[in-house]
Write a protein that binds this DNA or RNA. Structure first.
Lengths: 114, 114
DNA sequence: TCTCTATTTAACCTGTGAGTTAATTGGTGA
DNA sequence: TCACCAATTAACTCACAGGTTAAATAGAGA
């Protein structure tokens, strides 16, 4: 369950955005993520669970480790929907992008001329 | 002064995102915005000042009224930068979009192959 | 089974975000 | 100048996000 509210709430923390950036190119174990921060492991763990319940990352146990990775269509999809709702400029461009990104985006409601 | 932190903090409130949506197509007076919400005018006023100090909207006095409007290149720019940092998928598409949107986006740092 | 390591959960503290009502500022117009 | 209206600022409350340390869970391996 990934609502816009949860997603934007999740993105409101710089530390959580930083976690997403770390996960951009490959999944990482919880420990490897925590190592990159000053704060305690439990704090990082909380951030991870917030990101997960926002649907932005997935989690998979691997032995005694836990692997985390991006659920990237989610992020792209939500940001895309938001831009459609809020960014006025070039409707034409927005359509092009949507076509390019095809599969990776949500069903899509195209808001026609207001 | 519009830092990513302030922008994402501003976007974390559903009410503030709703205000942005109202301002998408045209500027509105503070009162007209407040009328669309249940909460008190001072509450709306606070949201507006948060959005403004994040650089997402501008404000202009008009007689006894105050007009608010979107500072839309800001929003597009910040979301764009964030997507570059965090969304892995199609680097090619991201480049195309940037070219299309040319003027409206920030200087741009293209993160090459990690 | 016992121990070690990885990670999360529990319990707690503290700062601050979002709302309220009451007071203030700034501009209009008789 | 005075009354009125738009909007903000001030002062205050309440809930909750984000951090801490200590305890619990879960799997690996001797």
């Amino acid at each position: 369950m990934s609502s816009p509210d949860k997603v934007f709430e999740a993105l409101s923390s710089a530390n959580r955005r930083r976690i997403l950036a770390y996960l951009r190119d490959r999944p990482l174990h919880a420990g490897a993520i925590a190592d990159r921060f000053e704060m305690s492991k439990p704090a990082v763990s909380k951030h991870l669970s917030i990101l997960e319940s926002a649907g932005l990352i997935w989690r998979k146990r691997e032995g005694q480790f836990i692997l985390y990775g991006m659920e990237q269509e989610q992020l792209a999809g939500h940001l895309w929907t938001f831009m459609q709702e809020v960014c006025p400029p070039s409707r034409a461009i927005r359509r092009e992008v949507r076509d390019e990104m095809d599969g990776t985006l949500p069903p899509d409601t195209e808001p026609e001329q207001s």
